[in-house]
Nucleic acid binder design. Structure first.
Lengths: 120, 120
DNA sequence: ATACAACTTAAAGTATACTTTAAGTCAAGC
DNA sequence: GCTTGACTTAAAGTATACTTTAAGTTGTAT
């Protein structure tokens, strides 16, 4: 699969895919005449990386994690990184839920004001 | 209340409070001899602003919203901004929950590998 | 054989949201 | 009256994560 196809499939810029590769977040992609040709395994890595980025994992942590995915002796370390990330996500979910409550409260409040104005 | 006290109360840098004020996100704070002296109303605005920042509201939207909080004729517009933000938060919650599931799945998977290694 | 579109690289540039710096003011303690 | 510490400003600097640019290569259609 070409970089353009991957870009369109996942809604990610080609330049971002190259950037991740340069940073060592995505392993070297096989090339035909100097042109990237993504394998099924590459695509699975990309899916995971994009998911973790959405989860708020920063580039450094992602780099640390992805540098170990081939190494069976690092299972415990990899698990620890994902647990760190899970804890971060859980905390973020709590924060967002609290914000959502506040937003809903304020929106309702404004609705009441608008309803009262209508009655006049 | 001095800027230092506010900074400590909310865990936000004094420079950030000055920055928000300069951007028009926080209204001009009354000054005594050129030194900021935060009122109770100022503090309530700060609490709200910090909550919205945590909710992922960007500076531009926050500026747009905060510029209208004194204007009764803008209730509908203010409500619309908060509804936009609520929709964003709900979407983000969905994304984060999906990521959390993936993380939990992977963590469990690693745990199984570690358990199997132990048995040998 | 030549033009074109899509790829390549390295390096510089950008967006967002602060944060730091430099230079100055002011009230309080010695 | 002078030092000290906390404040002030405007402007420059920083962190993170890309994104754009410039210059060059390659396969394909004319």
């Amino acid at each position: 699969m070409t970089i353009k196809e991957v870009s369109e499939k996942y809604g990610v810029e080609a330049s971002t895919l190259r950037y991740y590769e340069k940073e060592g977040i995505l392993s070297l992609v096989p090339k035909v005449n100097g042109v990237r040709n993504y394998t099924e395994a590459n695509l699975q890595n990309i899916e995971f990386v994009l998911c973790m980025r959405k989860a708020g994992m920063n580039i450094e942590r992602l780099k640390r994690y992805m540098s170990m995915i081939q190494d069976d002796s690092k299972t415990l370390e990899r698990k620890k990184i994902l647990e760190e990330q899970r804890d971060d996500v859980v905390r973020e979910l709590e924060v967002l839920n609290a914000c959502l409550e506040k937003l809903n409260y304020k929106i309702e409040h404004y609705q009441k004001i608008l309803d009262a104005e209508k009655k006049l």
